[in-house]
């Protein structure tokens, strides 16, 4: 395993070193020490490798990730996994606002709570939160799955397109054009698989499904000025 200490080398060197690894690298396992809340750790990776960050980070951990598997032994600041394309990011602690924003693919697992706007404008990413999510989560979410094992805050799924939202606990309120929907077998299958992959012990049957009422994003002449 390769060890990179952010107290002795710069963040830019860390990211450049990780970017240099090719798919046939024999340096496929990395441990990043002393993150101390720094921003933009392990961003823009595009090779399958394991990166473990030993502590809490600041903004944009693992942004734009492709293929890499990143684990954080701590909590993360705003914008974790922003615009992730593929791979996995696992956060052992909590995540601040807009976790997984605009993500196109891959899996983001948050083992603690996520703050406001979790999964805002998600475009295909799967997000599993073991705890609660804050207000305006999945705002304008277009595609992918948001799984919340705890409770959801105000205005869940406001202006939602076609993302699926699964919540096990309570929902403080639904946003405009978001509604509860029937949980069919196909949804239980998707959810069971996501719970299993992410290591959650929750049962798919305990969740409710929410989705778009599809009234807001279809053109309606009566809404025109």
């Amino acid at each position: 395993m390769q060890v990179f200490d952010l107290e002795s080398n710069s963040l830019r060197e860390l990211n450049a070193t990780l970017h240099e690894q090719k798919s046939n690298t024999n340096k496929g396992k990395w441990e990043v020490q002393n993150p101390r809340g720094r921003h933009a750790i392990a961003v823009g990776l595009d090779t399958a490798m394991d990166v473990r960050v030993m502590g809490s980070t600041g903004y944009y951990l693992g942004g734009m990730n492709q293929k890499a598997h990143i684990t954080v032994d701590g909590s993360v600041g705003p914008g974790v996994a922003e615009n992730m394309m593929s791979g996995t990011i696992t956060v052992e602690g909590d995540a601040s606002q807009y976790a997984g924003a605009t993500g196109h693919g891959g899996l983001l697992v948050i083992k603690g709570n996520a703050s406001s706007r979790c999964g805002i404008s998600m475009k295909g990413i799967d997000i599993v939160v073991f705890g609660d999510v804050g207000h305006m989560s999945a705002f304008m979410a277009q595609s992918g799955n948001l799984v919340v094992c705890g409770d959801a805050g105000e205005a869940l799924g406001d202006s939602l397109y076609e993302a699926r939202l699964f919540v096990r606990g309570s929902v403080k309120s639904l946003g405009a054009d978001c509604m509860e929907k029937e949980m069919r077998k196909e949804h239980l299958d998707i959810l069971s698989k996501l719970l299993k992959t992410s290591g959650s012990k929750a049962k798919a049957e305990e969740f409710r499904r929410y989705g778009s009422a599809r009234k807001l994003y279809n053109f309606n002449i009566d809404n025109a000025y």
Binding site: S56, T57, D94, S115, G134
Partner: peptide
Amino acid sequence: SEYRALVDLPKIENAKVWEPEP
């Protein structure tokens, strides 16, 4: 404003850390 500002405080690794609610 950010966790960075708190990292040098004594025993921060054992602190209860959270975001104040809106």
